[in-house]
């Protein structure tokens, strides 16, 4: 059963499952503690500064693969002792992000920023700032309340930046939390855009003073046990599944409701009687097939006709076949008439005008009456009229009787 349809097979709003987007993906680290002579220090006890221990960097032990492994071990990525480091995660496609969470092996940074890209890493925009000193580090006020006019803007918060716990601390960001329109997310294009990303970057901008940590400067590194990113494929409410593409590639929306495109962001060919819309819980906004009476497989959408019809139908059939014409292929082409013994969808609409008795191949679309030459009669102009008789001339087939 596909959740995109109810028990009566009526279309309904649907979403792919929330999934762990970082799981199994490679995170690119700008700096990694990857061998001698580097060394880093950490704390065994989250509350006891005296539990400090130090160890040398090893080639494979601290790589960024450890950020997204899920083997249950607390394996950590460690940066080189430095003031700045970044972690970048490519999601492969546009996703809707519900949370980003980092579990630290080191003390949490004094200042950390999360950025997102919507164009596969070409440009980046701030997603969230965390800092004990928002003004000084990011030139932003510490924010506790997000008003509607800024719900598509990154804010800086002071929470989650405390020195303790010294290990195991969490930094979590939920892009919708505290945003006024979050309860009506499905009706808020601004927030739908706000949570959309193709790539994420975490920038560790400043650590707490090494002196406070009881370390020398060259011993202080960022250490992260886990990077979790919760989200789902952006399918605009038209897919409940988003399986991995061929060869385990980029996930693809399994588009329903007669939609198509990487994000179910357009209507399938021939389903253009109404404009495409994102689904909402109130209305699935299913794409509707054009009505071409089975005489065409192609159509286009006209907003003008859609508005004129009271927003009911805007499809215009293209390339009507079987000698039909009109917006819905509902008329016969010139020279052809409908055989009313067959339904309008029948392919059997053929011209019945007599090749000699009629002046041409044109007939009345409603009655089927062909235009007859002088002295010729009948629906198809196939007989001489009263007082006329057949001649030998194909040009004047009936002549007045003498």
């Amino acid at each position: 059963h596909d959740p995109c349809y109810n028990a009566n097979q009526h279309p309904q709003f649907c979403l792919p499952d929330l999934s762990e987007l970082a799981s199994g993906r490679l995170v690119e680290a700008s700096s990694t503690c990857s061998g001698p002579p580097g060394r880093f220090c950490a704390f065994q006890d989250s509350a006891n500064p005296g539990s400090k221990f130090c160890q040398g960097c090893q080639e494979h032990t601290h790589r960024s693969e450890h950020l997204t492994d899920s083997d249950g071990d607390t394996t950590c990525w460690w940066s080189k002792p430095t003031a700045n480091a970044t972690l970048t995660l490519a999601l492969g496609r546009r996703m809707e992000i519900l949370y980003v969470a980092l579990r630290f092996c080191s003390p949490r940074p004094e200042s950390l920023a999360i950025y997102k890209s919507m164009d596969y890493g070409r440009s980046w925009m701030p997603f969230q700032f965390f800092s004990s000193r928002c003004w000084r580090r990011y030139h932003l006020p510490p924010t506790t309340t997000i008003v509607k006019s800024m719900e598509h803007e990154a804010v800086c918060i002071e929470a989650q930046t405390a020195l303790k716990p010294l290990t195991g601390g969490l930094v979590a960001f939920m892009p919708l939390a505290g945003r006024p329109s979050a309860q009506r997310f499905e009706y808020s294009p601004i927030l739908q855009d706000w949570v959309t990303a193709t790539d994420l970057r975490v920038s560790f901008d400043r650590m707490h003073s090494a002196r406070i940590l009881g370390m020398r400067r060259k011993e202080a590194s960022y250490g992260v046990a886990e990077l979790q990113v919760g989200g789902r494929c952006k399918c605009n409410g038209h897919a409940s599944r988003c399986p991995a593409g061929k060869d385990g590639g980029v996930p693809q929306c399994d588009c329903q409701h007669n939609t198509a495109g990487p994000e179910c962001d357009t209507c399938k060919t021939f389903y253009w009687d109404r404009p495409w819309q994102r689904a909402t819980p109130k209305d699935a906004h299913e794409c509707v097939a054009c009505n071409c009476h089975r005489h065409s497989h192609r159509c286009r959408f006209s907003m003008e006709l859609f508005e004129l019809s009271g927003r009911q139908s805007g499809g215009i059939c293209l390339n009507c076949r079987h000698h039909t014409a009109g917006r819905h292929c509902q008329y016969c082409s010139p020279g052809f008439k409908r055989d009313f013994s067959h339904p309008i969808t029948s392919h059997r609409v053929s011209c019945q005008c007599h090749p000699i008795g009629a002046t041409g191949a044109f007939c009345n679309q409603t009655t089927g009456q062909c235009q007859c030459k002088n002295g010729v009669t009948g629906l198809t102009c196939n007989r001489c009229a009263q007082g006329f008789q057949q001649s030998r001339s194909a040009h004047i087939p009936c002549i007045r009787k003498l």
């Binding site: 000699i356 009948g378 196939n382 007989r383 009229a385 001339s393 194909a394 009936c398």
Partner: peptide, 23 residues
């Protein structure tokens, strides 16, 4: 009275070959 259908065989097609249907 129903008049008879035009008899294509009666026509002289000499000058109207292009009009002549396949019979």
């Amino acid at each position: 009275d129903v008049m008879p259908t035009l008899d294509m065989a009666l026509f002289d097609w000499t000058d109207y070959e292009d009009l002549r249907p396949d019979m």
